[in-house]
């Protein structure tokens, strides 16, 4: 059988076998993944999406550190019930500054992509410190240590912003200079709440507030 005798050659030559495996396994990535990495629309921010400032970035990194994305997703699917429950469905352009992405793969708790503005800062504070005091049957763990730790304890906010700047995030020198000052006096929980409160603001379904109304 011709195919089988051709295969015999592969079986008797380790180099050919290795090359064969590499060749066959690389195709899927080249066809599926590579084009996505060069697709402009997936790396172009929506009109309302802006980069995370120093406080929000710190909060986001705490979200990552505590494994929040293990139980909370940040991806609203284009399904009627989901849009009714959480808000406008998630668009790729809202995530261009998310390194890494935090879409999650499990909802033990609700989706958080448009949690911004839905609850007050105080509510978030109480909920993070003791979830069961505001949601009776909640199985979310409590995060009391966030209220005790200084936000910039490691003093690495400028380093972080410089690295992100290298990766294309539009931070100005002024932003980076002012960063440690903006974290002064804040605890980790304050930065996490600030991050949660901007989640979802990037939807192009929200009207941008007029410039005169913000001071």
């Amino acid at each position: 059988m011709d195919g089988l005798s051709l295969h015999k050659k592969l079986e008797e030559n380790a180099g050919l076998l290795i090359f064969g495996i590499l060749f066959v396994s690389i195709i899927g990535g080249l066809v599926q993944v590579l084009p996505v990495l060069f697709q402009e629309s997936l790396s172009t921010a929506t009109e309302n999406t802006r980069v995370y400032d120093a406080v929000e970035l710190t909060g986001r990194d705490i979200y990552i550190r505590e494994g929040c994305s293990v139980c909370h997703s940040q991806q609203i699917r284009p399904l009627i019930a989901e849009v009714m429950r959480y808000g406008p469905y998630s668009r790729a352009g809202e995530f261009v500054y998310d390194r890494p992405f935090l879409w999650g793969s499990k909802r033990t708790g609700p989706d958080l992509h448009r949690i911004g503005g839905k609850y007050s800062d105080i509510w978030h504070r109480v909920h993070l410190l003791d979830p069961r005091s505001v949601v009776k049957n909640s199985i979310m763990p409590a995060y009391p240590w966030l209220a005790n730790r200084e936000a910039n304890a490691n003093n690495d906010i400028q380093l972080k912003m410089r690295v992100l700047q290298k990766l294309g995030h539009p931070y100005t020198e002024a932003d980076i200079e002012a960063a440690p000052a903006s974290l002064e006096g804040l605890k980790e929980i304050d930065t996490l709440i600030r991050y949660l409160q901007v989640l979802g603001a990037g939807s192009d379904q929200f009207k941008k507030p007029k410039e005169e109304e913000t001071s």
Binding site: Q32, V36, L42, E94, P100, F101, K160, V163
Partner: peptide, 19 residues
């Protein structure tokens, strides 16, 4: 890209990172 010994930022972002 590493920031400190214990922290780095992914080369990819958002939807591209997801894929």
């Amino acid at each position: 890209i590493p920031v400190t010994f214990s922290k780095s930022y992914s080369l990819y972002a958002g939807a591209q990172d997801a894929v």
